[in-house]
Amino acid sequence: MRSIRRIFSVGTAALVLGAGLVAGSSGTAQAAASDCTGGANGFTDIPDSLSGRGVAGAGAVVLEFPTNVPYAIASYAMQTGTVGGRQMGWGVLTTSSSTWGPGAVGRVWMDVTNDGKNSWIQCGPFDARGGARITTAAYPTSSSASRAFRVCAQVVSPSPITGITCTPWW
């Protein structure tokens, strides 16, 4: 059983790492949650419990630890729904409580572009520990081809770090 878990985690790590390389410059170093909370840059704060319709896919991030608690597993997704009477999109991250490794932190953020993916603003990262659900702030959707969203996630700990993985642009 342990070897099946190891094969799964190595395969998942390779997938996550590959997706992170494709994601390119979507790293979290240049942005902060304050870039989109409290109404900043056209975003709207929403409760972490808000659920909507899943769009643009979803994914999972797995971090293997060398200790007796071997994994930190987080799932992420992009959702849309009505917020304050407007159609909006947001990101959500859910962390596992039963497998959460020591010191691990799950991160989620949403990238929004209004110029056809030439540039974007990053909303987040927002951090969560094991057994938590957290959302990004929400941003209005549009029928314009120049506006697009994607949700990205990562798990970090004092030692290991996963690659960044993102949904496709929607």
Rank of each mutant, 00 (worst) to 15 (best):
M88P: 10
A104Q: 06
L17Y: 12
A33H: 01
G89C: 07
S157E: 08
G20L: 02
G20R: 02
G20M: 05
S157D: 13
A58G: 12
S142T: 15
P158Q: 14
N114K: 04
S119Q: 11
R86K: 12
R53Q: 12
M1G: 09
G131I: 06
A104E: 10
V62A: 06
N41C: 08
R147E: 07
A138C: 12
F149A: 03
V61E: 13
P160T: 04
S49Q: 03
G27P: 05
S49D: 10
A148H: 11
Y71A: 06
V151F: 00
S25C: 09
A77I: 04
T12I: 09
L17K: 12
V156Q: 11
I161F: 07
M88R: 15
Y139F: 15
P158Y: 07
V105P: 01
G59Y: 00
T165S: 00
S34D: 12
L93E: 02
G130S: 03
A138K: 08
T99M: 07
S144A: 15
F126E: 12
P66A: 08
S119A: 15
D35I: 06
G106N: 02
G27T: 11
L21G: 09
V83W: 01
T28F: 11
F126Y: 15
A60N: 07
F43C: 06
L63H: 04
G18N: 14
I164W: 00
L17H: 08
W90S: 04
G130K: 03
W109D: 00
T141C: 06
T67I: 09
I134F: 04
W100R: 03
D115F: 04
S26L: 05
R133W: 01
K117G: 04
C166R: 00
F126K: 14
A74G: 06
P140V: 12
V92P: 01
Q30L: 14
S146Y: 06
G57K: 01
A31N: 12
M110L: 10
A56H: 03
T165F: 00
F8G: 09
C152S: 08
A104C: 11
I161A: 13
S144Y: 06
C36P: 01
T80K: 14
T67E: 11
N118R: 15
W169N: 02
T37L: 05
A72K: 02
A33S: 11
A77C: 03
G18H: 14
V61P: 09
G103N: 12
P140S: 15
A153N: 00
T67F: 07
G103C: 10
S98A: 11
G116R: 06
N114H: 09
V112T: 15
S25W: 11
V112N: 08
V108E: 00
T80G: 11
A14Y: 07
C36Q: 03
R129N: 12
